[in-house]
Simulated assay, not measured.
Amino acid sequence: MVSNRRVTQLDIARLAGVSQATVSLVLNGTEYALARIPQETRERVQRIIRETRYVPDPIARRMAKGSNRILGVFTYEPAFPSAQADFFLPFLFGIEEEAQARGYDLLLLTGVGQGAQRKIFAEESRLRIADGCIVLGRAFDRDELQRLVAGDYPFVAIGRREDAGAPVPFVGADYATATGQLVQQARALGHTRLAYLGPTDTAESTADRWRGFRAALETDLRMALHMTDTAGTDAALMDAVLQSGATAVFCVELADAMRLEAAARARDLRLPQHLSVMALGSHLRAESSRTRFASFHIPREEMGRQATAMLVRRIEGGTGEPVQQALLPCEPIAGDTLGPAPR
């Protein structure tokens, strides 16, 4: 009846002697719409569908319904190089798991440009291939974020974001509370002179850590050292800490905590007997370290899952879906590097 090529709705219509619109109604129409088609016509169309073994084109059906069931994922930094894989991969695991559970495919959007120059929007933006997009990155382009907020394209950011002309939908981690809890743990162990190593305002995530640290400082706690730039040798970094008299060090970056640990070993000093060192957030690279740093667990996979669920709600709920923002708690990691303050 029909050649070996894929059978189409037009083929079914020609064989049944009806219009393609009638075939589409038989396949996809509501009960009310089907009632307008004579029963004999419906049965003839259905018989030819069976005989030709017609299989609907899923892409065409999605386009007819105005949905591709595809979620975009955009990262401002490359997601897979070894230097950053341990940052992005847990998010991607959670995103993939939730998308699959909800019947959506994923599309990785890399935008245009290289590295820090990546842009979501280009002259020929491909955002609309996906029904909505999850946006990841340590720092966002503020102009692009404002454009996303002002538009009608569904998106959700991973990580807390300041308003960009209007509230930004996001799922983040409560870094401020987790950092403050670490400070209180150190205080309970007798530490009164603290050092803080790392940036304070390069992105919301670093600003939140700094805010939590400052809020936890009480009258008997003193910030003996604050270094936003930790460039230099490991020995120079350790010299600065020791000369300040700090007994507990809070490191925004795990790399700085590992540098202090290496410098301590080189001087025959031990953590935490001579110095307590904390990393402000879990990191996959910590698993390969010989030292288990006192820290807190960042729920990256759960952030990915909840961001995906939030995005699907925004897609399926339409413009009436309210903007949601969620901060997930960070569980403490006891580690081996926080102990009583040395006398």
Rank of each mutant, 00 (worst) to 15 (best):
E96R: 13
V45C: 00
R259P: 05
M238S: 11
A64Y: 03
I48M: 05
M303F: 07
Y104F: 13
T179V: 15
R102N: 11
Q114V: 14
Q306P: 07
M258F: 14
H226Y: 11
R187L: 13
L89M: 10
V112Q: 13
I120N: 06
A235Y: 06
P78D: 05
F155L: 00
E204D: 15
Q184L: 15
M223D: 06
G281N: 00
D174E: 08
D86H: 14
E77P: 01
L197H: 05
S205F: 12
T179N: 05
P78N: 02
A35H: 09
K119D: 00
R211V: 05
R36Q: 15
I49H: 07
K119M: 06
S3G: 15
S295G: 08
A262G: 02
A164L: 00
T291E: 12
E316V: 05
E97V: 12
T230Y: 12
S3M: 14
R118V: 03
G245C: 06
F88C: 02
S282D: 09
Q185T: 12
P329L: 04
Q185M: 14
Y104H: 10
E162F: 08
I120F: 01
A164K: 03
Q9W: 14
T308M: 08
S205H: 12
M278D: 00
A294R: 13
L92K: 02
G151S: 13
L34D: 10
G281M: 04
G318V: 07
R193P: 05
L225Y: 01
G159F: 10
L271A: 07
P58C: 02
G320D: 13
I158W: 07
Y196N: 06
R14V: 13
Y76H: 11
A164Y: 04
P167S: 01
K119L: 07
L280M: 14
G320W: 01
P299F: 06
G180R: 04
G72V: 08
F155R: 00
R142Q: 15
G245E: 03
S295N: 01
S288A: 14
V45S: 03
C330H: 09
L194T: 01
L328G: 01
A116E: 12
F87H: 06
R285I: 13
D57Q: 01
P38V: 04
H274M: 10
L127G: 04
V312C: 08
G212L: 08
G66M: 04
D131P: 02
G132P: 06
S205K: 06
R211G: 00
S205G: 14
A235L: 04
I48K: 05
L254R: 11
Y32L: 14
Q306K: 15
L107M: 14
R126D: 08
A64I: 00
G113V: 05
A307M: 06
R343F: 12
P167F: 00
A166Q: 09
P56A: 04
P199I: 12
P272T: 08
G113W: 01
D336N: 09
T202L: 15
Q9D: 05
D11Y: 12
R44S: 03
S205P: 08
P342H: 02
A99Y: 03
L34F: 04
R222F: 12
Y196H: 11
